[in-house]
């Protein structure tokens, strides 16, 4: 529709340049060593590019000119030109980089080294490791506060969120969460940190000011055994009022009221739903479904799934570029 509207607009007023550009969702396929590129208007895979081994975490630079990819089994973070799919260079990442977060300075990557119990900080300009920080066993979830002052690593077997002072690269707090923490996100105002625990089946909300636990989100889906409800990746809605939490083998995304920490809805997805990304206009959410090898497109207004898109084997991470 948007394209049609754009075309009509162009016909009517030929002096207005550049039609509305469709957005893209980039999905890493863990068992195919590729990224799939989905057009957010046509909802089709338009390109597939080869990557290093076992690509997982994925994110764009602020100008969307570089795509960073955790190539876990190649022990590197790759930098791809998203216009050509060409790998520009590799960054030192420490062993087995699984997930990372780009600092608000658009320059430093904080990387979880899953096999090494380390968080590595890399300067993407000098391509040097700036620091390595000892954290718990199997670090995975990575987050950074909106002001860039606090980085978070969650460790799956130690069951903690480790709070890193980005000025000193030292831990200043470690907070226990439920079993197997997977993902962490700060709220947009930086006042809260949310951490999902896959085996514990909960999301814990912390006050960033004093690392105090503010509450915990619990889940229940009729007909799904409690121990298969495993919260992993999640995103906040642009207005901050809702959180969308992928529940892994429960094959649903939960919608949470961020004011009450209560679940308001469950949305059916593909199998083992994992991470997600917003469309550029934030009307749709794209979830990676590892076991079914597809991406579910969710209409955010109605909170309903509208399409499944086949991608590669074991889609893991997702990142948007407009």
């Amino acid at each position: 529709m948007r394209r049609l509207a754009a075309a009509l607009l162009l016909t009517a007023t030929p002096l207005i340049p550049a039609p509305i550009q469709a957005g893209e969702i980039w999905v890493t396929n863990e068992k195919d060593d590729t990224v799939s590129v989905i057009d957010t208007d046509t909802l089709e895979v338009i390109k597939t590019y080869p990557t290093g081994e076992r690509p997982r975490g994925v994110t764009f630079s602020k100008d969307f000119k570089r795509l960073y990819i955790c190539a876990s089994d190649s022990d590197t973070v790759q930098v791809m030109d998203p216009d050509t799919g060409e790998i520009l260079h590799d960054l030192p990442s420490g062993e087995d980089p699984e997930q990372f977060v780009l600092a608000p300075d658009d320059r430093h990557l904080y990387i979880a080294n899953e096999d090494d119990a380390i968080t590595t900080v890399v300067d993407t300009e000098t391509r040097q490791v700036v620091a390595q920080i000892d954290v718990g066993v199997e670090p995975e979830g990575m987050a950074i506060s909106p002001d860039g002052k606090i980085a978070i690593t969650t460790s799956e077997t130690t069951n903690m969120a480790h709070w890193i002072d980005t000025a000193t690269h030292k831990l200043f707090a470690n907070t226990l969460v439920d079993s197997r923490p997977r993902h962490a996100e700060f709220t947009a105002d930086g006042s809260q940190l949310w951490v999902s625990a896959e085996i514990g089946g909960t999301v814990t909300v912390f006050s960033v000011a004093d690392q105090r636990e503010l509450g915990k989100v619990h889940f229940a889906i009729s007909g799904v055994n409690d121990d298969l409800i495993q919260p992993v990746g999640f995103k906040f809605s642009p207005d901050g009022k809702r959180a969308f939490v992928a529940l892994g083998p429960a094959n649903h995304v939960a919608v949470i009221d961020t004011a009450s920490f209560e679940v308001t809805n469950y949305i059916l997805t593909g199998r083992r739903v994992w991470h997600m990304a917003w469309s550029p206009d934030q009307s749709r959410l794209f979830t990676t479904n590892g076991v079914s090898g597809d991406v579910t497109v969710i209409d955010v207004a109605s909170e309903t799934p509208v399409k499944s898109i086949k991608v590669g084997r074991f889609p893991w991470g997702a990142a948007m570029r407009p």
Binding site: S74, P92, S93, G94, Q128, V129, A131
Partner: peptide, 8 residues
């Protein structure tokens, strides 16, 4: 290829 990184 990059098992060990140079740590600045």
């Amino acid at each position: 290829t990059l098992c060990r990184v140079a740590v600045a």
